[in-house]
Structure formats: structure tokens, C-alpha cells
Write a protein that binds this DNA or RNA. Sequence first.
DNA 1: TATAATGATACCATATCTGTATCATTTGTC
DNA 2: GACAAATGATACAGATATGGTATCATTATA
Lengths: 146, 146
Amino acid sequence: MKLITRDTDYAIRALCYIMKGGHKVVSSAEMVSKLHIPRPFLRKILQVLNKKGILGSTKGLGGGFEASVPPDRIFLVDLMEIFQGPFSLNECLLRNLACPHKKNCSLKKKIDAIEQYVISQLRSIRIADLLKKRGSRRGKKKNNQN
Amino acid sequence: MKLITRDTDYAIRALCYIMKGGHKVVSSAEMVSKLHIPRPFLRKILQVLNKKGILGSTKGLGGGFEASVPPDRIFLVDLMEIFQGPFSLNECLLRNLACPHKKNCSLKKKIDAIEQYVISQLRSIRIADLLKKRGSRRGKKKNNQN
DNA sequence: TATAATGATACCATATCTGTATCATTTGTC
DNA sequence: GACAAATGATACAGATATGGTATCATTATA
């Protein structure tokens, strides 16, 4: 079971790259070479982010993509819903009339509770959180070999 | 995103059916007619449960399947791992060397924490819990229209 | 021996995931 | 204006997972 698919993953990386450093406009070509993501796939992803209003784009020479939303307003759960569709961790159990518990299905209740927790956790993660280098835990690693 | 796939779902229902009531040996034909699950698919699932030691089987006329493990020893997470493979909600983010955070990826840490929670919750659900009609919460619903 | 059951296994249809390929459009530079 | 560099739109394709079917072998009972 995967929680995060590859396109969501790539979208996260691309957004981090665009929003980190002082870049304003970043071309897909630059991201391909830096992030090692297949070019046509990345382009497709960037176009989606553009359509969703998270990125703006400029065509032509020197063009590319830039953030149109600050990183503390982009939540992981939103990206997941864009690329992976809405959450519904169960859905399967009541679909079939044969389910012996129907509306009182205790399994559904428990799965629902888990789902709510997962969503709330994912909603607490923003791109801004992923931009912090490793700051929060001071001195966690002595040798910084980056 | 689905947390529980259909084969796991069917397995749960079949196990509940087998373990509820006083049945000892239940044929796949009986379960097909009661649970409305496609016959060949259910048979395949039952064979898996048999191989995994959760069910025992007897061939021939009057044969079928019976529980070989008590319902309070069958955990939801085990069924999910049988039919859906092991959990690894992220895995995607470190696979690629290009990940800008590598070992210190804060996203990975957060996803890991979510994963641990989900697993622990799923590990707390046993088939036995699903057999209780609606007992635990006394008087929760007055009109029992079953 | 006929029948009712499971065991084993191969196959198949569909959807999703992970891309690829192509052409059109816009924009800046010469 | 021509050319090149960028994105926009869109269709296609291969791999994998999901959900299900089909077939034949084996076992047990009457």
C-alpha cells in the first residue's frame, strides 16, 4: 500500500525546488536536470499545478514556473487530492448490500476514525515545513556532508 | 485511495460468516449464496486463507471450510497484509537519490509516524470485534429494525 | 462410480500508475 | 520576420495491480 504516489512525490519536490532559494521563475528544463525527474512527466505535473492555481507560468524564452501561493498555504493533503483523488479509505464495505452489519458496521466506524486521523495529520504538513533544512532539532547531526 | 481492497473485504465477510452462528463446516457454495460474492473469486480467497492457516478445509461431499484460529486471534492488519502486501506508506521518497533531504527528510518522518499509528490501530481490530452485533454500546439505538 | 466438494493454476478484463510523443502557442532575441 | 526557447493541450503506451473467470486435478462420500 502506498500513501503517496509518484506524481505527488514529484510535485512536492518540484514545489520545494521552486520555493527554496531566491528563484523566481524556474524552467522545467532546470528542474529536470536538478531533480532527475523524466521531462515529459514533470511537465505534465507542472501543468496540473498551474491549472490548479498553485503555480503561475510564463511562456517563451526565459519563461517557466513560479509560485503563486506561499509555501505555508500549500498542504500535503491538497496535493494528494489533486493527483490521487479524494480520500475514502473504506467505501468498500457498505457498497455491497450483503454486508452483514450495514449501517451499524463497526468496522466502518473504526476505519472512518483512522481516516479522519490520517487526513488531519496530512493537513498539518505544509510545503513550508519541508523547506526547513533540518533546523528544528538542534545538533542532531554533526557532520554535514552536503 | 483505498485502505481495504475487495479481496480483503470479502475475506473479512467470509470469516465473519464462518465464525458466527454455530456452523462448523461451511461450503463455498453456501457463502456465495449468502454473501453474494462471485464464486470463483471467493474460492480463491478461501484457498489463500487455508494456506495461511486461518481456515482448515475438508474435501468431498459435505466438505467446506472451518476456522482453525479463534476470532480473537485474527487481526485486521494480518488479513490486509495477506491480500494487499506489507505496509509501506511512503517508500517513494527516499528511493530516488535526487530527494533533496535524503536521510533527514522531514516528510518521511511524518509519514512514518502516520503509518505507525495506522498500523497500531489496525492491529487493534480483530474479527472477534466485528462479530459483536452492536452490543458494546448499550441502548445506542432504540429501534432495532433488523 | 457418480457427485460434491476443494486444490492448483492459468488466464483475462479493467483501471491505475508511470510515463512518452506530438503538435500548437506564446515570447524573447537576432 | 525568423528562429529558438519555453509552456499548453492532448493522445498514446507500457507496466502493474485489481477484480474476476475458467479449467482440470484431487479427494471424499454415498
